[in-house]
Design a protein around this nucleic acid. Sequence first.
RNA 1: GGGCCGUUAGCUCAGCUGGCAGAGCAUCGGACUUUUAAUCCGAGGGUCGGAGGUUCGACUCCUCCACGGCUCACCA
Length: 513
Amino acid sequence: MMFDEHNEITDPILVRLRNLDKLREKGIEPYKKKFVRTHLISEVRKDYENIEPGTETGVRVSCAGRILALRTHGKATFADLKDGSQKIQLFASLNQLGEEEYELFTNLDIGDIIGVEGTVFKTRKGELSIKLEKFEILSKSLRPLPEKWHGLKDVEIRFRQRYVDLIMNEDVKQVFYTRSRIISLIRKFLDEKGFIEVDTPMLHPIPGGATARPFITHHNALDMDLYLRIAPELYLKRLVVGGFEKVYELNRNFRNEGISVKHNPEFTMLELYQAYADYLDMMDLIEELVTYVVQEVKGTLEFEYQGIRLNFNRPWRRLTMVEAIKEIACENVSFETDIETLRQVAKKYGADVKPYYGKGKLITEIFEKAVESKIAGPMIIYDYPVEVSPLARKKEDNPDVVERFEVIVAGREIVNAFSELNDPIDQAKRFYEQVKLAEAGEEETQRFDYDYVRALEYGLPPTGGAGLGIDRLVMLLTDRYSIREVLLFPHLRPEEPEEDPVIERAKNDDEIR
RNA sequence: GGGCCGUUAGCUCAGCUGGCAGAGCAUCGGACUUUUAAUCCGAGGGUCGGAGGUUCGACUCCUCCACGGCUCACCA
């Protein structure tokens, strides 16, 4: 019900629409195009935070921001103003503003965006404030903000209307400042090492570079299906063939898989490739990169993630997959173990063992089910089975495994890296093995990419490559349990449009016109 | 996709074994020139997520649906 028995408007949006109308009746335009401010609120705070209570600086400043609280006391009113940098108290008095302006100020709604001009002073209670001389409504807010004390907690509203979450929850805003910082630190680190950032296609005719189900889309003019990329890997290595010896791409991948606390359909990856390097060089580079970022962001290399103690001091512990299984799960398995035993062990840990799984896949299953989640880390797990690594170079003294490693932190993979397979004949064989697996019924396999093999035929220098999951790194450094907390707009099902009095108003205006 | 849990005023939440729908904040009206979760007086505000069903009677029990959370599976 939007009207009560006295025919008063009770719907909060209608109340605010009425307030908007009142402003327009007074000839005040509530949506301005520009406001020149002299100070960010943080600058005012920085310059005058230390003045004594009761001090009038006489210094004039103009600031702008959103009203988050209003405390009226008859002929004087306090308000909290928040801009992108900080919050400050405003003091408005009838004396200073005059009757008309003062009434306008007390009738502001919480959430309104205003520009102010006044002098800096500190109240007797020691609150740094701006004594208003002038103010201007810059944007009228038509929707009530959540309650000031409990704030916004409803997770669904927080994600659907992230803008409200960001207004209300400073810690959420900090997560995204940190995210931005992490990304720019990574770019800075790689740029200084002589890497160049490149943009390769997001629309792939063949989804490659990873094992995952792709999103399919369609190009109308060419009448062809295209896939949103699942990884940029094959394009980046083509660039190494072309002579870019240090390249990286830091951008989105798309995978048509389940959504969970660790998975979003689109997520951000860093992939980097360095010519004339191998996976051991990648271990060093990744250790250096990650410890640099951790130190810059956390100020220390030892911290807790969700109660798990992490220690990023170098060198990180390095174990082969088989060693890790032995040490952490106390299972003595290897490529020497007969396949039936491997199957039994894998099943024991809950793996869904398919008949066509070879020893390598079974060992990987055992590692993932029995070991991975128990590692605090960071720990480097290396010597991955060739069976699960179709793009990595085989180890010279052991053809069962490849020169590949993953970095595990808090039970999760955050880095995957290897010496790139640069033998075109071997690569073609691996693609054929993937095709055979697909025929055997494996749902997720890599597709045969003829042009990629052709590129290798020209000669890919020995190359080391690595991929780093940015979202997961951000989760670690911001201590967030869910990936949604580090994505500004995590994927959600569409909602039913709610009734919106503002849109109703717009429709009615149209009818009048 | 499976399992478990949740959805009550603008927000945060109560609401017992089925019996008149509640609080705080916000809003509206009034008082108040140093408050800061301002205070004081007064008032209004609900399709109890949606649709069915059981019942004399459903926020409460049952079924289905929607959305969300956690979890398992696929995956990073």
